[in-house]
Design a binder for these strands. Structure first.
Lengths: 201, 201
DNA sequence: CCTTCTGTTGACACCTGGTCAACAACGTGT
DNA sequence: ACACGTTGTTGACCAGGTGTCAACAGAAGG
C-alpha cells in the first residue's frame, strides 16, 4: 500500500493563506453581487474549510469591505509630476494621465466608479467618498485651486461625478470615444475654473 | 363575559393590504440597507404574518425592486411646458424647475441619486439607468438636441452624473448653496451645448 | 519517536427567506 | 339566526447561509 501519505491539507503562513482567500473573494465579488456570493463559495474557491474564512476575516461583510478598500487603492502613484504652466495645459495633461490610468485599470475602476445610494451602506459609502476626495484633491492640484476651500472642493466633487459618468460611457457602454470624453471633461473643467469658481470669492 | 369576540385579525382588500405592506417596506428600506431589513421586520411593522409578505410580493428582493421602481416615479408631471426662446433662457428655466423638483422630493431623490456599481445588481442598475435616461431626455428637450443621436445622449448622460453629484453636495452635504449648484450646472451645460456637442457630427 | 505549536477542520447553534396546508374572517343564501 | 363557501391570513416547516469553537493534524524541534 502507498506509504507516502499525501497530507490532506497543507499549512500556510497566515499572511499567505489570508492573501489567497482574499484573492478568491475579490474575484467572486467582482463577478457576482454581494448576496450571491456565500462564504462557502469563497472557501471552496480557495480550497479551504468555510470556518477559515471567518477565522481570517471575521465576518463576510468585513471581508467585502476589505475587498472594496483595496480596489480603491491603485498601485502606481497618483501623481506623476505636473509641469508648471497655464491652466489649459495642466488640465489637458492631467486629464490625459487620468484617462490613461482608468483605462489601464478599467475593470477595477468600473466596479468602483458608481456606488453608494439605494442600498445605502454607510461603511461602503465612506470608503467610496474617500476615493472621491482623493480624486478631487488631484484635480484641485491640476487647476491650482485652494484645497482648503470647502466650497471649491464641493464643486470639484461634483465634477468628479461628471468624470465617473463620462468614464462609464466610454469604458463600459462604449457610447463615447476617448477623445470625446477628454473634450467633454476638459471643456467642463475649464468652464468651472474660469466661470464658476471665481464667483466663490 | 364579553361576547363581542374581537377578531384576532381583519381581512383587507388585497390592494389595500399590498399597499400597507409596501409602505412599511419602503420606510424600512429607506432607513436601513437591504440586508439589514428582514422580512420579519417588514411583517412586524405591518402587523402581519411573515408569510403574507411573500404571498403578495413573492420574494423580498422583488419587493425591494418595486420600492426602488416606485421611488423613481415622481407623481407630478415631468414637463411643465418650456417656453420657446434662446438656449440660455431655456436652460436657466429648465434647471430651475429641475432644482425645484429635487428639493421638493429631496428625501426620495437622495435615496435614488447615487447607485449601482460595487454591489452591482443588474436589476437595480437597469431601473436606475432608466431613470437617468428619462432625465437625459428632459435635458435634451431643454437644449434642443437630437434625441436619437446616441453620442449626444451619452454626453448628456454624463452630464446627468454631474447633476446628481451636485445635487448631493447641495441637499445631502449642504456644502453648496442652491445658487451655486444652479450656476455650476448652467455653465457646464452651456459649455457642452456650445463647445462639445457641435464636434459630434 | 515523542512533544509542542498552531493552522485548519467540521460539527453545532442560530437566523433568514420561501412554501404550503390549514385556519378563520366575512359576505351570502336560507 | 345559522350554515356555507370564499379567500385573506396564519404559523409551522424546510432549505440554505453565517459565525463560533473544541478538537484535529501538519510541521518543526528535541
Amino acid at each position: 500500500m502507498s506509504t507516502d501519505a499525501e497530507p490532506r491539507w497543507r499549512r500556510l503562513e497566515p499572511d499567505a493563506r489570508r492573501e489567497q482567500i482574499f484573492t478568491c473573494a475579490r474575484r467572486l465579488f467582482r463577478e457576482r453581487p454581494y448576496s450571491a456570493v456565500s462564504t462557502a463559495d469563497i472557501a471552496q474557491a480557495a480550497g479551504v474549510a468555510r470556518g477559515l474564512v471567518n477565522h481570517y476575516f471575521g465576518t463576510k461583510r468585513n471581508l467585502y469591505l476589505q475587498v472594496i478598500k483595496r480596489m480603491m487603492f491603485i498601485p502606481e502613484e497618483w501623481a506623476e509630476t505636473l509641469p508648471d504652466g497655464p491652466v489649459e495645459v495642466r488640465v489637458q495633461i492631467g486629464l490625459t494621465q487620468f484617462l490613461d490610468r482608468i483605462s489601464r485599470h478599467s475593470k477595477a475602476w468600473l466596479s468602483m466608479s458608481g456606488a453608494a445610494g439605494v442600498g445605502h451602506d454607510p461603511d461602503v459609502e465612506e470608503i467610496l467618498a474617500e476615493a472621491d476626495q482623493t480624486g478631487a484633491s488631484r484635480i484641485m492640484e491640476m487647476i491650482g485651486a485652494d484645497k482648503d476651500n470647502p466650497q471649491a472642493r464641493a464643486m470639484i466633487l461634483a465634477f468628479v461625478g461628471l468624470t465617473k459618468a463620462a468614464g462609464r460611457e466610454w469604458l463600459a457602454k462604449e457610447s463615447l470615444t476617448r477623445e470625446q470624453v477628454q473634450l467633454l471633461l476638459e471643456q467642463s473643467l475649464l468652464t468651472i475654473v474660469r466661470t464658476v469658481l471665481p464667483t466663490l470669492k
